[in-house]
Write a protein that binds this DNA or RNA. Structure first.
Length: 507
RNA sequence: GCGGGUGUAACUCAAUGGUAGAGUACCUGCCUUCCAAGCAGGCUACGUGGGUUCGAUUCCCAUCACCCGCUCCA
């Protein structure tokens, strides 16, 4: 079990799974590159997802949308405006608040200072409404009343965003006694901005997509009109997304450029809950089937107060990483929120006509949204193991065979007696179907261990007996167990092993 | 974004105000018939930019990156 990310980061670097982006220039915070083994692993994960969720199903189609879209898409989705809230920092308490959730209560007390001016106290309170904010403020105001007398009249209530800049210094933050510790509201827009065309003007601003989902909604009508699809059905997309995270952390877990595997599953409103339950279970099981078997994998339903305002139910598939329990995938029941928003902003009709029921309605959506990089990281963490073979410790990556970057390695036991030639012929044969590796250098034990660290599930070795009876040994990564198979059956044996079918010639 | 820590070879780590050493790994050769064996040889490093100094990997400043804690995570 991996208990320390440093070990994994080190192995990823050493074996070529993951490197810091543009490392020779010192890297870039929040960006990572996948090396030769990493790209195979991540690709296998994405391929498994696509195969299991799109190809193998009759009710799913795929899509590949552009990363830069008409900026109006992000107005409809709420990414421009709604979620780019200005934030306010408190210099004293180091707290950060949403500016729209701070209300300032300006009290005036009868006591006067040496200039004869009345004593004022501008107290900041937190809450979605002035009433909520007042609760906290009133206690503090009452304390002040003991010193300065009962306030004159009711306090004036000013939303922090409406505050005159000069008045900001008067405000006492929610967690301090001192005035003037709050900063001006600052925008934290998490979308990467760019310009379409050579001219950098406000009129041609565009954004790198912060999620793949909106491209699916924007194409809903196209798919319905041309795809010969009938409700219920889903649209799937795998692709890069970008979020200018304030604080990237935890290796590749929170990156500024990342890859998503998203499904928007459209259905009749009265079936949405059923489909939500279905996807919640199905998506969890997918991770289990691919090897996240330990109790580090969890399914957690959101509490009602955690839900986005448009969602009636959301569940997170979480994994207990060494740095904490974190989300791999969210399954959200989003109702008709997204299509309704896009109808409002685009003016286009995105309702669906059910031919059998002769009904027109706006489909409801269940959204299983997974992070490919997060899944990759979870599979890496889960696979990492240290055990002992013949009294020697080894590091082994126990990837599910479907996900392993290299499926098999082929070795000659020693570099003579025609063994390399025989081994290479087997290698050439296997390579047509699988990602396999050939190695004739060094001691055989060393070659096995090298493959263990790469997570290669099987090793085929040509020895002196091969020339006599045409068999080779096959070694299992996890158990180090070996048995012999005819070399002519090598390809079929590997196919079976990778598919979990019975092993030919097993003894 | 705040606070703390760390940056030396591919990896893990030393030492040092006078330009650096080990283990592992990697490469070449010999040997070797199944789990990191042995012998010989070889390659590779002071994150970046300033400053102090005759001279800086070492001291100072800044910056970048990573780690830990807070914060954030639509």
């Amino acid at each position: 079990m991996l208990d320390d990310m440093d070990k994994l980061v080190s192995l990823c670097k050493r074996r070529g799974f993951i490197f810091p982006s543009s490392e020779i220039y010192g890297g870039l915070n929040g960006f990572w590159d996948y090396g030769p083994l990493g790209v195979e692993l991540k690709r296998n994960i994405k391929d498994a997802w696509w195969r299991d969720n799109v190809r193998m199903r009759d009710d799913m189609v795929g899509l590949d949308c552009s990363i830069i879209m008409n900026p109006r898409v992000w107005e409809a989705s709420g990414h421009v405006g709604g979620f780019s809230d200005p934030m306010v920092d408190c210099r004293a308490s180091k707290e950060r608040y949403r500016a729209d959730q701070i209300f300032v209560f300006a009290y005036v007390y009868p006591a006067v200072n040496h200039k004869g001016e009345p004593t004022e106290a501008w107290l900041a309170g937190l809450g979605g409404t002035p009433e909520e904010a007042a609760e906290h403020v009133e206690k503090r105001a009452a304390k002040l009343a003991k010193r300065f007398g009962q306030p004159v009249g009711a306090p004036s209530i000013i939303p922090y965003l409406k505050l005159e800049p000069n008045d900001r210094d008067k405000v006492v933050g929610p967690a301090t006694e001192d005035r003037g510790t709050l900063t001006e509201p600052r925008a934290f827009n998490l979308m990467f901005k760019t310009f379409v065309g050579a001219l950098e003007s406000e009129s041609n601003v565009a954004y790198l997509r912060p999620e793949t989902a909106q491209g699916i909604f924007a194409n809903f009508k196209n798919v319905v009109d041309t795809g010969r699809v009938k409700l219920p059905f889903g649209i799937a997309q795998v692709g890069k997304s970008f979020r200018n995270e304030i604080n990237p952390r935890n290796f590749t877990f929170r990156s500024r450029e990342f890859e998503q595997m998203e499904i928007e599953f459209f259905c009749r409103p009265d079936q949405a809950q059923e489909w939500y339950d279905y996807w919640r279970k199905a998506r969890f099981q997918w991770y289990v089937d691919l090897g996240l078997k330990s109790d580090r994998l969890r399914l957690r339903d959101h509490d009602p107060d955690e839900l986005a305002f448009y969602s009636t139910a959301t569940a997170d598939i979480e994994y207990a990483f060494p740095f904490g329990v974190s989300e791999l995938e969210g399954i959200a029941h989003r109702g008709d929120y997204d299509l309704t928003q896009h109808m409002k902003f685009s003016g286009k009709d995105l309702t669906y006509f059910d031919e059998e029921r002769k009904e027109r309605f706006t489909p409801h959506v269940v959204e299983p949204s997974a992070g490919a990089d997060r899944a990759t990281l979870a599979f890496l963490c889960e696979a990492y193991a240290e055990d002992e073979v013949g009294g020697e410790s080894r590091t082994v990556m126990r990837f599910h065979p479907r996900l392993a970057p290299v499926k098999a390695a082929v070795f000659p036991l020693v570099k003579r007696d025609g063994m390399p030639e025989t081994a290479e012929a087997i290698y050439r044969d296997l390579k047509r179907r699988h990602n396999v590796f050939y190695d004739e250098k060094g001691a055989i034990g060393r070659r096995y261990r090298r493959q263990d660290e790469a997570g290669t599930p099987f090793c085929l070795t040509v020895d002196s007996q091969t020339a006599l009876d045409g068999t080779v040994t096959i070694r299992d990564r996890d158990s180090c167990r070996q048995w012999r198979i005819p070399k002519a059956d090598a390809c079929q044996a590997l196919d079976n092993l990778l598919d979990g079918l019975p092993i030919p010639g097993d003894a």
